[in-house]
């Protein structure tokens, strides 16, 4: 066993990070409205950095996780995960995420199957908690992806989802550690309070746990197994809740942006659970 990331993967992560740069969604969320943070310019920069169709090649799982962690840290559009691993926008249970302007739609099928589907009927944008661009749409199957490719793609998607959640948790934790070091109350930084340290310690072990599950999936762990994603989703939600708690009211103001990771963790977790149910 080795717990360090190879130089090659670290370099790939660097290039994904550079392509993301200081990306942020182009506008503040209009809460309770339909939101879609898809960004073509960002997608083009990432493609140039090598974040393109990685899902069908099991050799690329390490790169998938390394890149997805960076995407999660930036809270980048989740369609970047779906398109690079599944080859299209994800459709499940009557909904597609980032379903407008999707190059293709793909859907989970029982026993780990994957189908290429096409929209039939109207595509109705649906207001949801975050910028995942959810639309309601019925679909018809166009093609059933061969099982070997399907399981490679689901393994990549599952590893990427874990990586994305790991990035979300890591960034929320890092922002919070910086905040409690800087914010003083009772004559000292919040970081000096044992209760604050204890809560951050729990968040740190959750974040590390998620990251290890992601790397395990990258190195031939249990692939598309739903158990890891089920826990990782909950744990990432918990870490982002801790981030809000320790930011106090400052985190509640939209202008600080912390809410992006909080909302995204819940959306990714919800979609991940829906996919697990559909793959069973």
């Amino acid at each position: 066993m080795r717990f360090d990331v190879s130089t090659e993967l670290a370099l790939f992560a660097d290039s994904v990070r550079a392509a993301i740069g200081s990306w942020e969604p182009t506008r503040e969320p209009d809460l309770g409205s339909w939101q879609d943070d898809r960004d073509d310019a960002l997608a083009a920069r990432l493609t140039a950095a090598g974040w393109s169709d990685l899902g069908s090649d099991p050799e690329m799982l390490g790169a998938v996780v390394a890149g997805a962690i960076e995407l999660g840290r930036a809270c980048a559009p989740i369609c970047l995960v779906d398109e690079a691993t599944l080859g299209g926008a994800l459709w499940v249970g009557g909904r597609a995420r980032h379903g407008l302007r999707a190059s293709a739609l793909v859907a989970p099928a029982p026993r780990g199957g994957l189908s290429l589907v096409r929209a039939c009927g109207s595509v109705v944008p649906e207001r949801t908690l975050d910028g995942s661009g959810s639309v309601r749409v019925d679909v018809a199957t166009v093609e059933i992806v061969p099982q070997a490719e399907a399981s490679a793609r689901w393994s990549a998607w599952a590893a990427a989802t874990l990586g994305y959640l790991a990035g979300v948790a890591e960034r929320a934790l890092a922002l919070t550690v910086a905040h409690v070091r800087a914010r003083e109350q009772f004559g000292a930084p919040l970081a000096a309070l044992p209760a604050v340290q204890a809560r951050l310690a729990d968040a740190a072990l959750a974040a590390d746990g998620i990251a290890l599950l992601a790397w395990s999936a990258a190195t031939g762990g249990r692939g598309a197994a739903s158990a890891e994603r089920a826990w990782a989703g909950e744990a990432a939600c918990e870490v982002t809740a801790t981030a809000h708690q320790l930011h106090g009211a400052a985190g509640f103001a939209l202008e600080t942006g912390l809410h992006r990771w909080y909302r995204r963790a819940r959306a990714v977790h919800g979609w991940s659970a829906a996919v697990s149910a559909a793959l069973r």
Binding site: L31, R127, T128, A267, G270, A274
Partner: peptide, 24 residues
């Protein structure tokens, strides 16, 4: 509620679309 639980602001959805906003 599964994916219905992410809906935020659709009056016709489960619980009047209030679950997403409650989560926030």
């Amino acid at each position: 509620l599964g994916l219905d639980g992410l809906v935020d602001g659709e009056p016709d959805a489960s619980l009047g679309g209030r679950v997403g906003s409650l989560v926030r």
